[in-house]
Nucleic acid binder design. Structure first.
Lengths: 208, 208
DNA sequence: ATATAATGTGACCATATAGTCATATGACTA
DNA sequence: TAGTCATATGACTATATGGTCACATTATAT
């Protein structure tokens, strides 16, 4: 966590530091991000930076676990609502939509998340979400169980495997739509999501 | 491509350099790999390294595009055979099996591939497979088209999207089985693959 | 006005890197 | 034996990094 001095800063200065940090962490992976560059762009002295943060990891953690998470929460309200009542596939759809909307509205924050999930340094990974983030498959495992209980889903499916597949897609599909396909239009995105859900609902085999 | 001097080396020395490079690139991502460490471990002088390779990228490219690809080819023969005759799902199964067997037999090479696919430096990505690797979704797009033509697959599916999903799973599923689930047993792996194919064949919706 | 505490600062440190180059070694040729 | 060429070498360069620290500045309290 940043030190008190950081939170004692004027909102403008604090925001400037956060913004410049977001810029850099969105552009580069953790190792390539330069603190020197951040302090230059934020127009503070190197020494000041270390008065606000313990070290580089402290800043990174703060972005990942506070700045980003706080933004993401807003996008999940719709999903949380649906979760109670709607069918499994409606809930899953809401989840995908939330993820894609977040990425559309906050491309830089989405980049940072993407960099983190793609990071292959196990030490860093551990140090960042040591305890703080539950196994990310857990959410979908829960949804699948609920879906089976409700009778929405085939009870014979391999839950852990299905959760893994759907989770990794939740993470990558937003990137794919926006960065690869460069789809901007909301309608088009909806069609893509529907097509994807259809694959998981009914499979791709020909029933002839 | 490495320089002639590299190929003029004795097989032992050449192999020693390759092995130590594989060690390092399996452990660390491109940026974190240190040439100094490789030359130390391979017991050659730093200057010698630069007589064999243009630069760091040259070595990396060589591992990725020659050493690894040449190994991978062996695992795809079975798949190539099946491709001609069998049904779409049989071919897909062969593809997944090939990927997983490669990862089981060559864990370090699989790590290197994994690091590369997860690398987020677009410049590096471009410089490495500039032209040399076709869009990796293309293989599965082709298979899907063939599958539809044969009548194996529902002709209404979104081919590009399906190809993306199946491709990204080909890449990540081997890692998941081996590193996350720590499944070693061949039978168990087969069951997992079958379960996965079933999801894509018939979907996960309850038909009641 | 004085003393104390909180912040700000940038030169500096230790460290590491990719890559170079003048020189040494050894092999092959005439 | 002398000369030529490919190869081997490691000290060295230029550069960059995260992090520190002695000191300067400002704000607060007495």
């Amino acid at each position: 966590m940043p030190k008190d001095t950081f939170f004692n800063l004027s909102i403008e200065k604090r925001q400037r530091i956060i913004d410049m940090a977001i810029d850099e962490f969105a552009k580069y992976s953790y190792d390539k991000v330069s603190i020197s560059k951040i302090v230059d762009k934020a127009e503070i002295a190197k020494g000041s930076f270390y008065q606000y943060f313990e070290d580089k990891k402290d800043l990174y953690k703060y972005l990942l676990l506070n700045v980003i998470v706080e933004k993401k929460v807003n996008y999940l309200s719709h999903f949380t609502l649906k979760m109670q009542e709607e069918s499994f596939f409606e809930v899953l759809k809401a989840l995908y939509i939330a993820g894609i909307n977040f990425a559309k509205d906050n491309p830089k924050l989405a980049e940072i998340s993407d960099h983190f999930t793609k990071n292959t340094d196990d030490n860093l990974k551990k140090e960042i979400y040591d305890g703080s983030i539950p196994k990310s498959n857990a959410l979908l495992e829960g949804l699948l169980l609920k879906g089976i209980a409700k009778g929405d889903l085939n009870p014979d499916i391999d839950i852990k495997l299905t959760a893994y597949i759907l989770t990794s897609l939740t993470i990558s599909i937003g990137e794919y739509f926006i960065k690869e396909l460069k789809v901007e239009d909301d309608m088009e995105i909806m069609t893509l999501i529907d097509n994807m859900l259809l694959i998981f609902e009914k499979g791709i085999k020909n029933k002839g």
